[in-house]
């Protein structure tokens, strides 16, 4: 699915050059659920941007779904982002002037999907995420958790090979965060490959593999034999008489 070899990224700002990634070699197989953790500034976002084809590495190779992307141009990058990658951001990044439905349709718009098909599929996915009664709400009319679910729906809509989520629970309270994690776990159970960045260990433990980054390098790569189950945690919280 993902195969990177000696990936480097150096930012140069004026006189300084900042090595953000210092040679990362990594394989992620289809169907994996990977969490990347590490201190702030360790290079997590840089890594995600490269994996998400939003940026180009300074050095090293990247095979996405068997495609060597190093020789592709901006248009190919855009097409691959559209077809193979679903982004979920910390700040949701929904377009404020579009309804939930329209936001979800956006990715399909750039895929050239016909109008009726778009409508049908967006409805399907939003319903799957429990938002069937929020279709025509604007982002500022929805809660953080709801917005993030819209964003996940948008990420899923083109059946991407992989979902990249950079701190998806960072802007949410812990219970809402768990709800989002439970969605990711469910998606992963159904076969979606997920790479998630978080600096919270509690969140990372829901994945099945944790990569720890420090200073532009992966310093630890650990399989999680028994990941936490977000769904159970929510149930437990409810029984303890937390929020309804």
């Amino acid at each position: 699915m993902i195969k990177i070899n000696n990936l480097c990224k150096t930012y140069s700002t004026g006189a300084f050059t900042v090595p953000a990634l210092k040679g990362i070699t990594l394989e992620i197989a289809s169907g994996e659920f990977v969490a990347i953790t590490g201190a702030s500034g360790s290079g997590k976002s840089t890594m995600m941007n490269l994996l998400g084809l939003l940026d180009r590495p300074s050095k090293g190779s990247y095979l996405l779904d068997g495609i060597d992307v190093s020789h592709l141009d901006d248009n190919d990058y855009a097409r691959l982002r559209n077809r193979k990658i679903g982004f979920v951001f910390q700040a949701f990044n929904l377009l404020p002037r579009l309804t939930a439905l329209k936001n979800v349709e956006l990715s399909m718009l750039y895929a050239g999907t016909k109008h009726e098909e778009r409508r049908k599929r967006a409805l399907e996915v939003l319903t799957l995420l429990g938002l069937e009664d929020r279709l025509h709400h604007f982002p500022n009319e929805l809660s953080g958790g709801q917005n993030q679910r819209v964003a996940i729906a948008r990420a899923l809509i083109n059946n991407p090979a992989i979902i990249l989520a950079d701190e998806p629970t960072g802007a949410l309270d812990s219970q809402t965060g768990l709800e989002i994690m439970s969605i990711f776990q469910e998606l992963n159970r159904q076969g979606t490959t997920i790479v998630l960045v978080t600096h919270e260990l509690n969140i990372a433990r829901h994945s099945r593999r944790i990569l720890r980054m420090a200073d532009g390098l992966i310093i630890n790569d650990e399989e999680i034999a028994r990941p936490l189950d977000a769904h159970n945690e929510i149930q437990a919280l409810r029984e303890k008489g937390g929020r309804a």
Partner: peptide, 16 residues
């Protein structure tokens, strides 16, 4: 600007 970034992330080409 942010809208443009979002659209690009979702697969908009420069031409779009």
């Amino acid at each position: 600007t942010r809208e443009i970034g979002i659209r690009m992330a979702l697969g908009a080409r420069r031409k779009d």
